[in-house]
C-alpha cells in the first residue's frame, strides 16, 4: 500500500512538472491563441478520462456527456449571477458536485438493470437537462447568458485565458492521478471484474452496484468540473452550444481511439484528435473537423478495438 502511495505521489509530481513545462512554454510563445488551443485539448483530456473511468474501466457507456458537462457550465452561470465575486476554483467544485449528484441519481435508478438501459437513460438525460436549462430563465433560458471575462488573471497576472488554462491543467493532473490510482487499486480490479463478467463478479462477492455508483459519481463529477470554466472561456453560453453533440462525441471517441484500458489512452486520443481537429478547422473548414472524431471513432472500434495504446502493447490479451 505504501509503495502505491509513493508511486502515485511520484506520478503526480511528474505530471505537475509536465504541466508547468507546458504552461511556461505557452508563456514563452506569448501568443494567446496557444492558450485557447491548449485549453480545448486539456479540457478534452479531462472529459475523455472522466468518461473512461466509467466507460473504459467498468464497460458502462455514458452517452450523456453533454448533460454532465453542461450542468457544470450552467452551475457556473448561476453562481456568476448570484455572487460574481466567487473565485472560479470554488465554482468548479460546485459544478462538479452538482454533476456528481446527477450521476449518482441516474446510476441509482438504472444501474441495477442491463448496461444498455443505463446508456439509453443517459442519452435521454442529455435531452432532458437541455429542456430544463432552456426553460430556466435565470440562467438565460433559450436566449443564452453572457459572462464577463475579467481582463487580467488573478494572482499570477497575464491574460485571463492563462488562468483558465492553469485551472484546466490542475484539473487534468487531478483526474489523471485519480484514474491511475483507480487502475492500481482494488477499486480498479473490481471495475475490471464488472467489465469482464458482471454476473461472475457479483457471485464472487464484488459489490457491483456500489462500485458502479462510485464510478458513475466520479465520472459525472469530473465531467461537471471540466464544464465549469466553460462560460468564462466562451463568454456567451446558450443551450445549443453548451449541449453541442461534439462534446459527447469527442469525449467518447478520444478514449476509444487512444485506448480504454489505461489512463494514457484518453490523453493520446485527446492530443491526437484535438490537434487534428484544430489543424482541419484552420486549413479546411469547421464543418469537416467535427466529422473527424465520429469517423475515426467508427474506424477504430471496427479495426483497432484496443486503440492506439493497444496497438503498441502488442498482442497481449
Amino acid at each position: 500500500m505504501a509503495s502505491s502511495v509513493a508511486s502515485s505521489a511520484k506520478f503526480v509530481l511528474a505530471l505537475a512538472v509536465v504541466a508547468c513545462a507546458i504552461f511556461f512554454a505557452g508563456r514563452a510563445i506569448g501568443n494567446s491563441y496557444a492558450f485557447f488551443l491548449g485549453y480545448v485539448v486539456v479540457q478534452y483530456i479531462v472529459l475523455g478520462t472522466a468518461w473512461n473511468i466509467l466507460g473504459g474501466y467498468t464497460g458502462y457507456v455514458n452517452f450523456g456527456v453533454t448533460a454532465f458537462f453542461a450542468i457544470g457550465a450552467y452551475s457556473t452561470v448561476a453562481l456568476y449571477k448570484l455572487m460574481p465575486a466567487l473565485p472560479l476554483p470554488l465554482m468548479v467544485l460546485v459544478g462538479g458536485a452538482a454533476a456528481a449528484l446527477v450521476g449518482l441519481g441516474t446510476g441509482y435508478l438504472t444501474l441495477r438493470l442491463r448496461g444498455v438501459f443505463f446508456s439509453i437513460a443517459t442519452l435521454a438525460l442529455a435531452v432532458v437537462v437541455q429542456t430544463l436549462i432552456t426553460n430556466w430563465d435565470f440562467v438565460g433560458g433559450a436566449r443564452g447568458a453572457y459572462v464577463l471575462r475579467p481582463k487580467m488573471a488573478p494572482l499570477m497576472g497575464g491574460e485571463y485565458v492563462q488562468y483558465l488554462f492553469v485551472i484546466m491543467l490542475v484539473l487534468c493532473v487531478i483526474v489523471l492521478a485519480t484514474a491511475r490510482a483507480i487502475e492500481r487499486s482494488s477499486l480498479g480490479f473490481g471495475f475490471a471484474a464488472i467489465r469482464d463478467d458482471e454476473a461472475a463478479a457479483e457471485a464472487a462477492g464484488v459489490p457491483t452496484l456500489k462500485l458502479k455508483l462510485i464510478a458513475t459519481t466520479l465520472s459525472g463529477g469530473f465531467m461537471g468540473m471540466a464544464g465549469a470554466p466553460l462560460p468564462y472561456y466562451v463568454t456567451y453560453l446558450d443551450p445549443t452550444s453548451g449541449f453541442n453533440l461534439n462534446y459527447a462525441v469527442n469525449a467518447i471517441a478520444m478514449p476509444l481511439i487512444g485506448g480504454t484500458s489505461s489512463w494514457l489512452g484518453p490523453v493520446v486520443g485527446a492530443v491526437l484528435v484535438g490537434g487534428l481537429q484544430e489543424v482541419l478547422r484552420v486549413t479546411i473548414s469547421s464543418a469537416a473537423n467535427v466529422l473527424v472524431a465520429g469517423v475515426l471513432m467508427v474506424v477504430f472500434v471496427i479495426a483497432a478495438p484496443r486503440g492506439i495504446v493497444g496497438l503498441f502493447q502488442g498482442k497481449r490479451k
Partner: peptide
C-alpha cells in the same frame, strides 16, 4: 463485443449521419 464498442459504433453512425 456488443456493449461498449457496438454501442459506440451506432453512436458514431448517428453522429456521422447527422453531420
Amino acid at each position: 463485443d456488443q456493449s461498449l464498442r457496438g454501442l459506440s459504433f451506432f453512436f458514431g453512425l448517428m453522429f456521422i449521419t447527422e453531420v
